[in-house]
Design a protein around this nucleic acid. Structure first.
Lengths: 198, 198
DNA sequence: CGTCGTATCCTCCGAACGGGTGACGCCGGG
DNA sequence: CCCGGCGTCACCCGTTCGGAGGATACGACG
């Protein structure tokens, strides 16, 4: 089954599996909700899933799919390989993570490998998973503060918004800086945006 | 002619024009340089061009293409509709700007319209063009300063890097704030990233 | 020729920031 | 049961920002 909100990509993928004997495209969905409904009726062995979609997005769809149909293998096929996307997909339990610039042979191989119970990772994704010094992400409260910083709020203003003291705001930010490996609010928001945290 | 670095998308687009009588895909390129070479030999009437590609990117390819083959109409087909992307494409002189979630009928219509000398804009792109209070973008030098801010540099540090005085750095930033409509370095980098300026 | 944008530089100053150190209650995992 | 992460708060202190005023020089554009 193919899940992607772009008609162009769906057509491209279907075409890529058109003349492949051992792979058949049994359904296409343009968002997570459709994917769940179609998975029930079409019973695919493998799902090729985009992550960023309107409505129910890829990660949410994967979680629900694995809850209701744990036997279906999900291979993520997306344009992005940001830390946050990769981490969330991994946590949701996918069998593979490929980028959309993958050649058709790689897609064929990925679907077969996934169907056989194996795992497939794009090189850049694999390296992204490695090169992480296991620093924990900022806590929900810390991210809340960081989001206000990204909007240009001063500490005093953030304190008023969140109904906490300015000291607490500074403490949160201090921890955020440490976790993101920066030492200024500007750099912090940049790193957070690049990692998809805010 | 189709220009996109993703095999999936190229296949999808070709498939979409497969059974269309009055449109023929005469060439495919995976980056700007290929596009220029193929334009010479294949002589397409219309080029469907992605913007973000390795090597020579879309905007660069469009500029050179319009210099050497001004009769070829270029329709941008991309995933993003950020201000900067749209503005640069418009400045380069395109006949259309569509997003990749466009249905096939819209693509057909766009190619025909472009071939006939008309212009096509995705709704969100059109509205993006409207909702601009005509504030000039930061100058190259100002962006240079802003990029260093995004890396977490302090003004004094930026001054050393760019071999100018700290006062000048502050002046540049003051102008950047005014142009981006913010009043802090953190908010400035966020806006700049969202607009694709840095 | 004037004026606009760019780029460079200056001073003064209050507010904001970032680091250091320390503290408390809560909760959950080892 | 104790330790670690979370969320909250406090004081101190030096540095940095950002605003408000300028100023000069140069090139472009009408």
């Amino acid at each position: 089954m193919i899940v992607d909100d772009h008609p162009v990509v769906r057509d491209g993928l279907r075409g890529m599996f058109d003349h492949v004997a051992d792979i058949e495209v049994v359904a296409e969905a343009s968002n997570g909700f459709e994917a769940l409904a179609l998975a029930r009726s079409a019973r695919p062995h493998v799902v090729l899933m985009d992550l960023r979609m309107p409505g129910l997005d890829g990660v949410g769809a994967i979680q629900r799919l694995r809850a209701s149909h744990p036997e279906i293998k999900v291979v993520v096929l997306t344009t992005y390989d940001t830390d946050a996307d990769v981490a969330r997909a991994m946590a949701a339990g996918v069998a593979g993570y490929l980028l959309k610039d993958a050649p058709r042979e790689e897609l064929h191989r990925a679907v077969r490998t996934a169907a056989a119970g194996g795992a497939v990772l794009a090189p850049s994704v694999a390296s992204a998973l490695m090169s992480r010094p296991a620093v924990p992400d900022p806590s929900p409260r810390e991210l809340e503060v960081l989001r206000l910083v990204a909007r240009g709020s001063a500490n005093k203003e953030i304190a008023r918004t969140l109904l906490i003291s300015e000291t607490t705001v500074k403490t949160h930010l201090k921890h955020v800086f440490a976790k993101l490996g920066v030492e200024s609010r500007a750099a912090a928001v940049v790193v957070a945006m690049e990692r998809g945290l805010i």
